[in-house]
């Protein structure tokens, strides 16, 4: 019981901490594209490979994927009751999000290196 309560609290905290970062960063990202869209490939690569932008983007993907994990996990727990289906979907979700995370890491770290 105490374990379950602790894990529920941890998910709750993760969801809110990641939400605050996403709330700050996502409007910045949308604003960048609205008001300063990259004019060409060179400028775009330069922007992404700027150290601070890259760090901000990597933190963004960490927050996004953790937020996605808790959110979709909650939805699956609420609506998918057969244990097998729930475990299967949670496993697919976990691997899918992990895959996205490694993909994002590769994209941001190797921007312009191709």
């Amino acid at each position: 019981m105490s374990l379950r309560r602790a894990s529920g609290l941890r998910a709750w905290v993760v969801q809110r901490v990641s939400a605050v970062y996403l709330l700050l960063f996502t409007p910045l990202l949308v604003g960048k594209f609205l008001f300063y869209p990259p004019p060409d490939h060179t400028a775009w690569v330069q922007w992404v490979s700027n150290r601070w932008v890259a760090i901000g983007l990597l933190l963004f993907f960490v927050a996004l994927l953790m937020h996605a994990w808790v959110g979709v996990r909650d939805i699956l727990i609420d609506y998918v009751h057969p244990l097998g289906a729930r475990v299967l979907l949670l496993t697919l979700l976990a691997f899918g999000l992990l895959g996205c995370g490694f993909w994002a890491l590769d994209i941001v770290l190797h921007a312009g290196a191709h």
């Binding site: 490939h41 994209i107 921007a111 312009g112």
Partner: peptide
């Protein structure tokens, strides 16, 4: 994101 960063052709 990947395609747009990979090459000028991808960006276009």
């Amino acid at each position: 994101l990947d395609l747009s960063l990979r090459s000028p052709q991808g960006f276009a």
